[in-house]
Measured scan of single mutants.
Amino acid sequence: TTYKLILNGKTLKGETTTEAVDAETAERVFKEYAKKNGVDGEWTYDDATKTFTVTE
């Protein structure tokens, strides 16, 4: 399944996708990605669109 991440950081904005077996796995991948890019904020997930959003 393809999951999407929307980054709404103070200095970094953008989108990325990952293939994962479930939302929990995708969330771990995306949180590591955000951490590596210095983005830390509020996380939300929309199951209907398989989209995570992190907003600083």
Rank of each mutant, 00 (worst) to 15 (best):
T1N: 09
T1V: 09
T1H: 15
T1L: 12
T1Y: 13
T1E: 15
T2E: 09
T2C: 13
Y3V: 01
K4F: 14
K4I: 11
L5E: 00
L5S: 01
I6G: 02
I6A: 03
L7C: 06
L7E: 02
L7R: 02
N8T: 09
N8D: 15
N8H: 12
G9H: 07
G9A: 11
G9S: 09
G9F: 13
G9D: 03
K10M: 13
K10E: 07
K10Y: 09
T11V: 13
L12P: 04
L12Y: 12
K13E: 06
G14T: 13
G14R: 13
G14L: 11
E15Q: 10
E15K: 08
E15D: 07
E15L: 10
E15G: 08
T16Q: 09
T17G: 04
T17L: 10
T17W: 14
T17N: 07
T18K: 04
T18E: 04
T18M: 15
E19S: 11
E19T: 14
E19Q: 10
A20P: 01
A20M: 03
V21E: 13
V21W: 13
V21Y: 13
V21Q: 12
V21M: 14
D22S: 09
D22I: 03
A23E: 07
A23D: 08
A23W: 14
E24C: 09
E24F: 11
E24T: 12
T25D: 09
T25I: 08
T25Y: 08
A26P: 01
A26V: 02
A26H: 00
A26R: 00
E27Y: 12
E27S: 09
R28A: 15
V29S: 07
V29G: 04
F30L: 05
F30I: 01
F30E: 00
F30K: 00
K31M: 09
K31P: 00
K31N: 04
E32F: 05
E32S: 09
Y33L: 06
Y33V: 06
A34W: 03
A34F: 03
K35Q: 12
K36M: 15
K36E: 12
K36H: 15
N37M: 15
N37T: 10
G38T: 04
V39M: 08
V39K: 02
V39A: 03
V39L: 10
W43I: 03
T44F: 12
T44H: 11
Y45S: 01
Y45W: 03
Y45D: 00
D46C: 07
D46A: 04
D46N: 10
D46Y: 04
D47M: 12
A48K: 14
A48P: 08
A48T: 11
A48Y: 10
T49I: 08
T49Q: 07
T49L: 08
K50R: 15
T51L: 04
V54T: 03
V54N: 02
V54Y: 02
V54C: 06
V54L: 09
T55H: 08
E56D: 09
E56W: 08
E56R: 03
E56G: 05
